[in-house]
Design a binder for these strands. Structure first.
Lengths: 332, 332
DNA sequence: ATGAAAGCGCTAACAC
DNA sequence: GTGTTAGCGCTTTCAT
């Protein structure tokens, strides 16, 4: 497509590029152009369907009005909702979103951060992979505005929005114990991720408070990329080791799903046999297990706050780091 | 962040901008620079963490390496998977993805298309809202490379990738009838969307083939924005009108979910009472209703093919339109 | 009330 | 082998 430029408009209107540029960027009034000229320019631009070349504008202005977002997976319901929330907020602030996903791979994450910086995005929102310390430190050094969501590094001073993983997990596990569970299994993933470590810690605290002892045979760690098959083999192992397990705490939604699939396929009446708890909700979980104690992350809030913080940082790069820990909602 | 430019590199290396530019863009060999110079430049660039300013590069080259994608909702599992698939493919072709969502609103869609064109994306992938004919026609007129996914307009010649809605729906409904259902309800949405009309048509064909008659009281149409509450009121109505309904065909995943939620909360043993069929699968559906006849969209394929077609069109704008109708996978 | 021109950082045709 | 320079389309300072 051969695009119409400001020069084209100027030539046809017998005006200068400057005049047209000012008027089209809404500064016509301010700079004292006559109403007639303003009308003439805007009408003409509209009539020929003129579209500002944002690339040129960005180069000139040194800002792109693009926000980059990096997540491990887009098709995880959690990140999908997060992105949706961010998109909505970003739209209000007149930015567009550029999305990349890392497949939880630190190398790819480093590369993508680089790509987006090359793209000169105005800021970044990142749900970082484990082991991405270097990239994050580099971003700080480069003074690129960014905010971490969901995951963060407790020893690096950055903007971030996350959830109270430990406290919430503690609550859920206590709840299971109060309902009478004595042998509560922990089904978790990627324990080198700080949020997951916190959830594990919360589980331990919950056990302790209820006078239950920690048994490592009750703890299952599953890798995200192979969680479907791993769930089966690991649960097989668990039921063999501890046949009378009577409670489950899942640190994230998809693990709960797979366990339920397992329960059903093994004809276990999980509604009465176990007490269940889960960190984070997803569509269908409440239908499959209405009795489950779910600690729901406020995804919407997380996206909105992250975006707000980011826009503030973009406006003032020297603003001190803002951290926000959102409280989950407990669905009993 | 004060970014390092090619000029900075050139000054420090006592070389010209051109030399540095050529070498960094990998044309050093071709243009006959000495290996020593090439090494010197690339090493230095790396050491100072130089990042190409893609904005300037894009302006100069007239291409951005950005692909825009527009969907109704990001947090719908179908679109989330689609985006994930597209992202993976786009990444291979060295593009990044800019995402916007329309909330199924044609006006917003028009605006977003404009925004992305302003951004000078190299191409667009669009799951278009109903009533967006004008925007699409304009895109054609402007010769912007684009491909429609999922939804398309049968009377506009464009690139698109979609599914065989009618045939597949027909199969599912026939299957329900063969299992013995006599009164099969159709639960659908947005009938002004061509894909949904086709699914309805498939339903009708299925009935006809099985010698069942169409009864409009068996047809429920639900609006996406209010589907949760609408599902309840509409199903209430259905069961009042036709208490002996014995089959359900859902034209999309979330409608099936809500119906099952309804069945469970009304203590209906839906496993034995009805035969169920659904257009498109989603996590949890197979767990909730293992007996359901699901016609699964090949989302991965859809994303990959759309991206491939788009990159071809970007390379040759005059290439004739390509259409692709993917076959669903029937899970019985 | 309007215009001329420099500059944003990069590419590539052309020169030597 | 390497350098000079015009140009991509827009913004904005400085003139008039």
């Amino acid at each position: 497509m051969k695009n119409i430029s400001i020069k084209d408009l100027a030539d046809n209107l017998k005006l200068s590029k400057a005049t047209v540029s000012w008027i089209l960027s809404g500064q016509g009034k301010k700079r004292g152009f006559s109403d007639a000229t303003i009308k003439r320019v805007t009408n003409y631009a509209k009539s020929v369907n003129y579209r500002t070349n944002m690339v040129a504008r960005s180069l000139s202005l040194g800002q792109t009005n693009i926000i980059g977002i990096i997540v491990p997976y887009i098709d995880d319901t959690f990140y999908a909702s997060l992105i949706q929330a961010i998109e909505a907020e970003v739209y209000k602030h007149n930015y567009v979103l550029t999305i990349c996903c890392t497949d939880e791979n630190a190398e790819k994450e480093a590369l993508l951060i680089n790509t987006l910086c090359s793209q000169r995005v105005d800021g970044l929102i990142i749900a970082t992979a484990q082991k991405s310390r270097e990239s994050i430190l580099q971003l700080k050094k480069d003074r690129v505005p960014f905010v971490l969501v969901d995951r963060h590094f407790s020893d690096i001073d950055t903007n971030y929005v996350t959830v109270n993983s430990e406290e919430t997990s503690h609550q859920v596990v206590s709840h299971l114990a109060n309902q009478g569970s004595k042998k509560i299994a922990l089904i978790t993933t990627s324990t080198n991720l700080s949020v997951m470590r916190e959830r594990t810690q919360g589980y331990c605290n919950g056990l302790q408070e209820s006078g239950l002892s920690y048994d490592e045979r009750l703890v299952i760690e599953i890798d995200r990329p192979t969680y479907q098959s791993d769930s089966i083999t690991q649960l097989d192992r668990l039921f063999k080791d501890i046949p009378d397990v009577d409670g489950f705490f899942f640190t994230t939604h998809y693990l709960a799903f797979e366990a339920i699939r397992y329960f059903i396929s093994h004809d276990m009446d999980y509604h009465s046999k176990f007490h269940l708890g889960c960190f984070h909700d997803t569509l269908g979980l409440g239908i499959l297990a209405p009795e489950m104690c779910i600690s729901k992350i406020q995804v919407q809030e997380m996206g909105t706050r992250a975006t707000q913080i980011l826009t503030e940082v973009i406006e003032d790069v020297n603003r001190p780091s803002q951290c926000e820990v959102l409280k989950n909602i407990l669905l009993k």
